[in-house]
Write a protein that binds this DNA or RNA. Sequence first.
DNA 1: GAGCACTGC
Length: 745
Amino acid sequence: MSLNMGDRKHKKLKLESAEEIAEEAERETLRKHHDETQQLNFHDDGEFGNITRHQSTTKQANNLEDGKTNPFSGNEFSVGYFDILKTRRNLPVHQQRDEFLKVFQKNQIMVFVGETGSGKTTQIPQFVLFDDLPHLQGTQVACTQPRRVAAMSVAARVADEMDVKLGEEVGYNIRFDNKTSNKTILKYLTDGMLLKEAMDDHLLSRYSVIILDEAHERTLATDVLMGLLKRLVAKRKDLKIIIMSATLEAKKFQSYFNDAPLITVPGRTHPVEIYYTPEYQKDYLDAAIRTVLQIHATEDEGDILLFLTGEEEIEDAVKKIQLENDQLMREGQSGDIKVHPLYGSLPPYQQQKIFEPAPPNVNGRISRKCIVSTNIAETSLTIDGVVYVIDPGFSKQKVYNPRIRVESLLVSPISKASAQQRAGRAGRTKPGKCFRLYTEEAFKKELIDQSYPEILRSNLSNTVLELKKLGIDDLVHFDFMDPPAPETMMRALEELNYLNCLSDEGELTSLGRLTSNFPLDPMLAVLLIGSVAFNCSNEILTIVSLLSVPNIFVRPIQNRKLADEIKMSFAHKDGDHLTLLNVYYEFIENGEDAKWCRENFLNYRSLVSAKNVRNQLKSIMEKHEVRLCSNNFNDRSYWDNIRKALVAGFFMQVAKKKSGANKNNYLTIKDNQDVLIHPSSVLTFENEWVIYNEFVLTSKNYIRTVTNIKPEWLIELAPKYYNLDHFQKGDVKLSLERIHKSVRG
DNA sequence: GAGCACTGC
């Protein structure tokens, strides 16, 4: 008996290239492997009769799950398996297994809304496996996650539930770590990773079902994937899509996917009482601290979670709360409280401290812990035991200004959805309370329903390049769920054109195609590829890697002066990019030693991560035959070549010192923004022309990571961009004209 | 003369 399912997709596939044919052959081998090793388990028990499109029922699936042998691996079930099975059957989502299957079987696309605790992320993919039988088709089921840790930990959990070894039938694929094999039928992966796969295989042909989880988070990758999948379902009738989301934005997903059907599953959390302040709080930080102390003094047992916006604010609040309560405790007026900060740049061992138990009660009063956190505790990290949440209603959010091409972080009011998510953090272990430091009126009238999706707040040059590589020619009419501003699109197209990644007609160039293989901003990828011409791709590879990780320089408050001095010992006179290179050399020279990093006020984790990135980029270079090369270190032109290579990449990010101005007052080229060189720069004497890595809007307009260059290089290396006909009259144009003349003369 | 919400490839 044969189900012949493998043929179903095979016929539909139009093979277009040698690469695809080779891939298809590989899949064929896989299918055979599956047929030989696994088909028996399903067929022997006769559950799946002679049908062309298998349609399972909960009863069938239950029987298989309750059986002796694992239908997917062929192994006998372990004892532990049945224990886990019991808890799984208790999850809310299990109640609706039949309902889910009916909708899934009848539709190509469906929307599944499950609140936290419903079990959707772990169970729905397994329900799908019993219906879709990917192991018999030689296909895979994909489930995307916005974050790496989620993909890893959920995969591990599901492998346990299915009683298989992680990396075999169930695996995950994230950057730097691919735990899948030719046995893998269920794969958890980051949304960015699936997008990357789509760039090489536009039909995503290895998948029979794609589940987009946490779609409500609307990451850039999720949004692009949704647009892509919407097109793909027309070409691949055998592909099924499930959009999973946690909030009530479900209607928007439904209508976007041509009125796809919806299933809603309740979550399993405890009720959370919401309190509002009677009036507007001018100083939310002060109000938050008072609220913490009041809860601590008057409420029942349970930990406190306070949301603030950033590192500095958090450290400040932690100190104040701890100080004030210590005083109260000495006076016998309150129990002990342990206050923990929590934010992304905190080293992991310090992040772990939030899980330490609360201190013992004193003064016959309740003691507890209080976590003061950024948004990281809203989605990425959950802390059990939290009963009280304090929500001042703000977070730092990325905004993009396409006019001056600058992304910046701004403290802004959160959305209703965020407020709801924050409140939910109080009800994970028992009924909780959420104190919102704004009025109910403000919540209803001033907070927007949903935060703006990332695609509306970002520079899109990378996304546009990806879409081009994905074969989308008509970007203007690409069906985004929320189309980005035309100006943002134009800016991206323009930038890619200047980088020679897109032709004047908007076609992907060979450089553009090469560039899209690198997990980098297009500008950095072009810089890297272009550095071969200056015989310094090894050096630029290091610099680019260091630019793609968090800041490597550490500057503790109590040791600022010493940290600055040590940083200057690494300094190169021509600027920060070359200084980064010096630091990396010495890091390697000193055996990549954590202690050496501490002594030199360098962030060890960042440097290790830069090394990882460097290795990944290096292997991509090797794969695409981008030569790795260096000039002789003792050559007089060694450093100049690196600076020239930098100019060839950063020619759009140049600033010129304002004539007659104080030192450090610069004007950006073309956009004419007044900027200052960031005080962290190693540049000590005045340089007329500089390139910069980023433009940051904080207390002032700063350019950060800056290198001194010669203006004639601009004209030599980026003639198209430095065509003076396109420049506004003024200081910059005048100087460039002078240089033009001297270059010619 | 000063800052880094959070992700992802």
